[in-house]
Nucleic acid binder design. Structure first.
Length: 129
DNA sequence: CGCCTGACGAAAC
DNA sequence: GGTTTCGCCAGGC
């Protein structure tokens, strides 16, 4: 076998529309799906629940595919640790995230979740990992 | 193959 | 207490 490997570029990609065996990504999606209505959680909380609290960024990246996996992942229920809708710019339209949250009973003001700690849902506690 | 970017987080300043 | 930097890992160019 000697140096086979890819010459230039990885043939991995995010696998658009279908297939998603990425363990880490899948875990993030699964946890996100468990978020009860009217509740929100943070990227770091999910990451910590998975044992990768330092990789909170990867959680955000994982959410990048949230809208393309099935069943759909309520990424709008995931905000940053400050309760700010950090990912609203990735939704279409951008205000949909806030709209969905309000519709579920979550108060949002100025792109920020009000009473955040009150609606905060900790996967580590609910899932008891 | 290296550099930069990125939906975070915590620490340093 | 706001701003900046590092860490973390993956992917795009």
């Amino acid at each position: 076998m000697a140096t086979k490997k890819k010459s230039s570029g990885k043939l991995k990609s995010v696998r658009p529309s279908g297939k998603k065996d990425d363990n880490f990504f899948e875990l993030v999606f699964e946890v996100a799906r468990q978020i009860p209505k009217g509740r929100v959680t943070s990227y770091g909380a999910i990451a910590a629940c998975l044992g990768a609290k330092s990789s909170s960024r990867m959680v955000g990246w994982a959410m990048n595919g949230a809208g393309r996996v099935k069943p759909k992942v309520p990424a709008h229920r995931v905000v940053n640790r400050l309760g700010i809708l950090s990912g609203k710019h990735h939704f279409t339209p951008s205000g949909m995230m806030e709209k969905l949250l309000k519709k579920e009973g979550i108060k949002v003001k100025n792109d920020q979740v009000q009473d955040f700690k009150n609606v905060f849902w900790d996967p580590a506690e609910s899932l008891r990992l």
